[in-house]
């Protein structure tokens, strides 16, 4: 469905971040991309969706194929028209717009009638958004914003969805709820998903296939079930040491990210 072949990405013409990455996202499957902070996961998604350009990033080598079409080098809004949409890390709802207006903006590539249907569809998967339809989205809770970010992406009626750390900063119960809905969406709406996560347990639990990225390279690949049993993964990415205790990056990470956006 989506095939990334050996891509290199350079920021500002000099900073080489991806050093030959290849990923295959099967039709109707969930593929997960794991890795520590700064590994290049978000960069990979941005390279696929085409928004890289607005950050002075560029795919300098390799190709990205959506079905039979080559989409690397295309502009982001054209990629979305072809049925591929990115859900950004940190939710990034249009804060000054209401819930419903966010959805309308998400359906920009669709006809007016399809937007109406799309809103009903999103509300059927995320009933909580329906209750908040007139609320300014900047004031929604974190979980509701994540639901809105996913719902907004659905509005373009995509075939492929790139999901960047949907679990970020959310309580475990909410993460479970959202992952459950994503699973249903994939089945019922026939989506193919590329899921970036640091929460490897959750991600490998829902995914069919997984990749592990380190320093801009894929260092491990395989069926999700196999990766779950892999001892390296257990230690480094599930954060389990021999005593079974967990380490978490999350708090420092959230802080770091805010700083980066503000600058």
């Amino acid at each position: 469905m989506l095939a990334i072949n050996n891509i290199e990405v350079v920021y500002d013409r000099v900073i080489l971040v991806l050093k030959g990455v290849s990923i295959d996202v099967g039709e109707g499957k969930i593929t997960t991309l794991l890795g520590a902070n700064g590994a290049g996961k978000t960069t990979t998604l941005k390279a696929i969706s085409g928004v890289l350009r607005s950050e002075r990033g560029e795919v300098t080598k390799g190709t990205v194929q959506l079905g039979v079409r080559r989409i690397d080098g295309m502009r982001a809004h054209d990629v979305t028209k072809l049925g591929l949409v990115q859900v950004f890390e940190g939710r990034r709802v249009f804060e000054n717009l209401t819930t419903e207006e966010n959805l309308i903006a998400g359906g920009h590539v669709q006809t007016a009638a399809a937007v109406k249907q799309g809103i009903d569809l999103v509300f059927s998967y995320f009933p909580r958004l329906k209750e908040r339809r007139g609320q300014i989205s900047g004031y929604l809770s974190g979980g509701e914003q994540q639901m809105l970010a996913i719902g907004r992406a659905l509005m373009s009626r995509p075939k492929v969805v790139l999901l960047d750390e949907p679990s970020l900063g959310l309580a475990p119960m909410l993460v479970e709820e959202i992952f459950g809905i994503v699973g249903r969406l994939v089945k019922q709406e026939k989506l193919s998903v590329l899921l970036v996560e640091q929460n490897a347990t959750m991600a490998l639990g829902i995914a069919d296939h997984g990749y592990v990225m380190e320093n801009g390279r894929i260092v491990l690949e395989g069926p999700a079930a196999k990766l779950r049993d892999n001892s390296d993964i257990k230690e480094f990415y599930l954060g389990l040491n021999e005593g079974g205790a967990r380490k978490s990056y999350r708090d420092t990470k959230h802080y770091k990210r805010r700083k980066r956006w503000l600058s």
Binding site: T80, V85, F88, R92, E101, S156
Partner: peptide, 24 residues
């Protein structure tokens, strides 16, 4: 109007607006 909403989306976040298929 949908165009007006799209324009506000652009004002809010250009990168995300692009990813929603809006020609910024």
């Amino acid at each position: 109007s949908r165009m007006g909403v799209a324009m506000r989306a652009v004002a809010d976040n250009q990168q995300v607006a692009q990813a929603m298929g809006i020609n910024v």
